[in-house]
Nucleic acid binder design. Structure first.
Length: 419
RNA sequence: CGGGGUGUAGCGCAGCUUGGUAGCGCGGCUGGUUUGGGACCAGUAGGUCGUAGGUUCGAAUCCUAUCACCCCGACCA
């Protein structure tokens, strides 16, 4: 990729309508632009990060036998009436009518639709368990959207659903998701923790939340020394104590702020009962299936990752979700053909090695290019100017450490550039 | 929804108290000098001052209504 066909939209001035670091940096680096409160456009740079996160999630879910599907965002009220949530779900559910005066809602979550989908073709226990997921836009009409994509009304979420003949099978699958989630957040290179949680609006028996630890988090969680913990709602119930301070005294746990990026639930029969999802079991009797559901806030992860990884110059992407692995920066290539040729040669070399590179071929001086890429946060920089061209070398610069060194051409084989 | 605040050029802001037809910085464009960390000089484009109404000879400025956005809270995965 070259900047000549990959538009860079960095801005210098501090955006006036954002307070939180991740939001500011996403605007300044040109990842997102606001459409209206809680709704954002994703520019090529931001979208690339989203895609990297999605792919990690895909790979890990595929590895536990979960298959990708896609469901419509606009959902008919009938299904929601069937589950009973048309009336129970609050004003976060955006409702509207079509031209025939039929009622619909914009999907905040997909239990109804997926349950309906699966039940149509489900008849035997032999078909179970079934695991499906989708990565799609969700809409929740938040009371107050805030902090950019951290708490948006329209956002991207991965939601997975599982169907089982019995609770034992649900337990097994639930644990698989737990492990998969741990793998996902490890690969995203985030400082995260899993805590016991309340199943809230979604319903069900058991639930865990995955939090990225960050001071700007909106949730409070209690953690012990080995980072096991629970959210404060659960703690209040568990210790029958309304004052969180007293719980801390009693248990020695620490209060931390977290950004909820994942939530898994054992739904049990809540939806399958309401929506009559049954299979013939071995004894040829009809049994109501057990269900689980498993969410990850994909767009929220982008903000959370930035909250954990930035400095005074801008974003410092972790390796796995950086929009690019390396940026190639030339100096004066517009004026010096030798430099241009040498830079192009390095670029083709990187491309042939299948390295995720962006070549900044803009006619700008070094300072401006570096400032942009430090703001954008690509972890590795390769600089090519007159000096490098003459010596047939490269200058490598590390975004996080700021270290700069002259390196030979075979440095391109370094493992830090590999996917 | 309650409280607080902001809407003026692409972005960030000043001007409003004390009405007289809009200005600064950054960015853009053109030309030139530069060029290993945001360079300089000269020129140039760009705004019905959120919207609607009112007061006035005259409104960015005063009055009324309305919309949008931000922050705190309640609430929420």
């Amino acid at each position: 990729m070259k900047t000549s066909d990959f538009p860079i939209f960095t801005v210098k001035n501090e955006p006036s309508d954002s307070e939180v670091t991740s939001h500011k940096l996403m605007i300044k680096s040109g990842m997102i632009r606001k459409v209206s409160s809680g709704q954002y456009n994703w520019l090529p740079l931001g979208y690339r990060v989203l895609e990297k996160i999605k792919n990690i999630i895909r790979e890990e879910l595929n590895s536990i036998g979960c298959r990708e599907i896609l469901m419509p965002i606009v959902q008919p009220s009938e299904l929601w009436r069937e589950s009973g949530r048309w009336d129970k779900y609050g004003p976060e559910l955006l409702r509207f009518k079509d031209r025939h005066d039929r009622e619909f809602c914009f999907g905040p979550t997909f239990e109804e639709v997926v349950t309906d989908l699966i039940r149509q073709d489900l008849s035997s226990y032999k078909q179970l368990p079934i695991n499906v997921f989708q990565i799609s836009t969700k809409f929740r009409d938040e009371i107050r959207p805030r902090f950019g994509v951290m708490r948006a009304r329209e956002f991207i979420m991965k939601d997975a659903y599982s169907f089982h003949t019995d609770s034992k099978s649900l337990d097994d699958t639930y644990n698989k998701y737990k492990n998969a989630y741990n793998e996902i957040f490890k690969r995203l290179m985030l400082d995260f923790t899993m805590v016991d949680a309340d199943s809230g609006n979604i319903g069900g028996s058991e639930s865990h939340e995955f939090h990225v630890i960050a001071d700007t988090g909106e949730d409070e969680i209690l953690l012990d020394e080995s980072l096991n913990g629970m959210n404060t709602e659960i703690a209040i119930k568990k210790f029958n104590e309304t004052d969180v301070k007293k719980i801390i005294e009693k248990t020695g746990m620490k209060l931390k702020k977290g950004i909820e990026v994942g939530h898994i639930f054992k739904l049990g029969k809540k939806y399958s009962e309401a929506m009559n999802v049954r299979v013939s079991d071995k004894d040829s009797k009809l049994k109501t299936v057990h269900m689980g559901c498993y969410g990850i806030g994909v767009s929220r992860i982008v903000a959370a990752a930035i909250e954990q990884n930035y400095d005074e110059k801008g974003i410092v992407w972790t390796d796995s979700i950086s929009p690019f692995k390396v940026v190639l920066i030339d100096i004066d290539s517009q004026k010096n053909e030798d430099i241009k040729n040498y830079s192009e040669k390095i670029y083709s070399n990187l491309i042939s090695k299948n390295i995720d590179v962006i070549y900044d071929d803009r006619d700008l001086n070094l300072g401006k290019k570096l400032t942009d890429w430090e703001l954008i946060g690509v972890p590795n920089m390769l600089i090519v100017g007159n000096k490098e061209t003459e010596k047939e070398k490269l200058t490598y610069k590390n975004r996080a450490t700021d270290e700069k060194e002259e390196v030979p051409l075979n440095f391109l084989d370094d493992k830090r550039f590999k996917n």
